[in-house]
């Protein structure tokens, strides 16, 4: 691309210059065909899914079910209840279940009713 390449061999330089000038350029018609070929061979860009397709149907069904359950606030409450239930099941306080099961706890927890007093003749 530099001039030294063109002038390093003086005897042939005029011939190479003539060769560069003489050789024809690509025709416009050929270039147009090459452009058409390039476009035909070009990979297709990724396209976003069209509205109304299978994805849109699935999203519509989910939205309807969510609305029937009370929307996102209801879903949040439901999720909190689920988590709490799982937590109680996993790490239940042992003294709480034990005291409920024992008779002493029951008598202590439940004061005597009118029926109890009648039976005792009080």
């Amino acid at each position: 691309m530099t001039d030294d390449r063109m002038t390093e061999h003086d005897d042939l330089t005029p011939w190479f210059t003539a060769g560069r000038d003489e050789m024809g350029q690509a025709s416009g018609d050929w270039l147009a065909r090459m452009e058409a070929m390039a476009l035909a061979e070009q990979p297709t860009p990724a396209v976003a899914p069209a509205l109304g397709g299978a994805g849109a149907t699935a999203r519509g069904w989910l939205r309807e079910a969510l609305g029937q359950l009370g929307g996102w606030p209801a879903m949040a409450g439901l999720a909190a209840a689920c988590v709490t239930g799982i937590w109680i099941g996993a790490v239940a306080p042992s003294d709480w279940t034990g005291s409920v099961a024992s008779d002493e706890s029951v008598s202590a927890a439940e004061p005597a009713s009118a029926y109890d007093y009648a039976m005792l003749g009080l």
């Binding site: 005029p14 011939w15 190479f16 003539a18 060769g19 000038d21 003489e22 050789m23």
Partner: peptide, 13 residues
């Protein structure tokens, strides 16, 4: 003449 020179070069190449 330039054309002919170019053709002569091509023939030599």
């Amino acid at each position: 003449q330039q054309t002919t020179r170019g053709q002569a070069l091509q023939a030599a190449l």
